[in-house]
Design a protein around this nucleic acid. Structure first.
Lengths: 251, 251
DNA sequence: GTCTATATAGCGATAGAC
DNA sequence: GTCTATCGCTATATAGAC
């Protein structure tokens, strides 16, 4: 079931040469990690804009040129962070035992673990959403440049939905809807200044309760009609092909 | 009904001194307009990032420092554009005769006129969404810095919903939902490369059809329960006070 | 391949003269 | 209110050490 994810991560990551066992590559990977970690720590402390590449290089103990050798730009560091978070999210859910859990519990696990991972990185998320309105930008969180990461994040949700064995159309609708919900939750999360972002957690609980409630209602004729309408609309809007791709990978 | 809007525009705009009749102020206002128009034209042609303040100053026929005298930053120009668009949207809908129209027709007028205004500015919208993940930034489209513009855009929707004389809770829910829909539509609009963004227009049609259909369903007991749940959740999430404020203004 | 050191161009933004 | 001059920054380039 997870084969596609491994394929994808192998295809997208340009620095898996560390597995070759060559000590030079290991050294190189360490330097890269050092630069990335230094950057993220500075980003968390002072924010993305206030941190300069020179700061990062100094903290990592390398020259400015070295930092640019590993990361073509400050944005590229954000991209690496983006991928790192998604790898972590995928890995955590892969480890979890979901066997006895309900759909709602599985989805709660998906949403909560995402929030856990991002707990201290709320300042960083702004950098990820920064180019969401610029389709051509490689870091646009809805654009082609982040397609792989986006599909991975949809896959995590699809894996939590699949065991429910829903009709295909409803499964598509639910997965896409939940993915959109997750994006909305993350935005709320950034703006949530309650202690430990407890409001966001409650929002997740409530949203999932309503989702599962509406899911039960979706079998009734009237809402079944609405459901077909929504699906036809999303299909016409071209928002489903990517999802189909993710669903095919499960078979 | 529109009193509040006039109050707001008077309070938020810091450059209405042109009405004082002083020739110096008129001259000043002309320079400001010249800089703003030059900037927007360059933004539309080459995008936000590719346009420099030096380009803007040259095109407007002033020195770099003069441009910064009128606009504290490049972002401030975007802010001015943002407010200008909302003023235009509010003004257009104020002129329209909505008397004989259905809710769906009124909402279509709201959504379509917004798209008409932004037709040639899709490259510019990316600059508006740029800081949506940074609450503290004055240009954050969800943050306190843009509260006034945001309330104006909600007011436009509320004005289209009000004649329907819905129960108060449903009206709140519908207005907030439609505002969120509008934001989503704008994102889709940015990514829509179909001719004249016809896909976005069809998306609006379909979304409004489903919205009005669900609205009719909302009176049934089962969906009425879901509706209460959703409203309670949004209230707990703190997403309603601002809306209440807008609704009070109509009385 | 990995990295240092250094230099240049052009950017946003600011200070102070006029 | 407008200008010139300047700052610190990013991005980029280059020459060379290892």
């Amino acid at each position: 079931m997870f084969k596609i994810l491994l394929d994808i991560s192998g295809a997208c990551d340009n620095n898996l040469n560390m597995f070759k066992g060559n000590s030079k590559h290991i050294k190189s990977e360490q330097t890269r990690e050092e630069i990335l970690d230094s950057a993220l720590e500075l980003f968390r402390q002072h924010g993305f804009d206030a941190t300069t590449m020179r700061d990062i290089a100094v903290k990592a103990g390398v020259a400015l040129g070295a930092a640019y050798y590993y990361f073509a730009s400050k944005d590229a560091i954000v991209q690496a962070y983006y991928e790192k978070v998604q790898q972590e999210h995928t890995a955590r859910l892969r480890q979890m035992k979901m066997d006895g859990l309900s759909l709602r519990q599985r989805l709660a696990a998906v949403f909560y673990s995402k929030l856990d991972i991002l707990e201290n990185d709320r300042k960083l998320l702004g950098a990820i959403f920064r180019y969401s309105g610029e389709p051509a930008h490689p870091l646009s969180c809805l654009g082609p440049g982040t397609r792989v990461v986006r599909e991975q994040s949809m896959q995590v949700i699809a894996d939590a939905v699949t065991p429910e064995a829903l009709p295909a159309d409803l499964q598509q609708l639910l997965t896409l809807g939940l993915w959109a919900l997750q994006m909305g939750v993350l935005i709320y999360f950034i703006y949530d200044d309650s202690p430990q972002q407890q409001r966001t957690r409650r929002l997740v609980d409530g949203a999932l309760e309503i989702t599962t409630f509406l899911l039960r209602l979706a079998r009734f004729p009237l809402l079944g009609f609405a459901r077909k309408k929504v699906l036809a609309l999303l299909d016409e809007a071209g928002l489903l092909p990517q999802l189909n791709h993710a669903l095919e990978a499960q078979s």
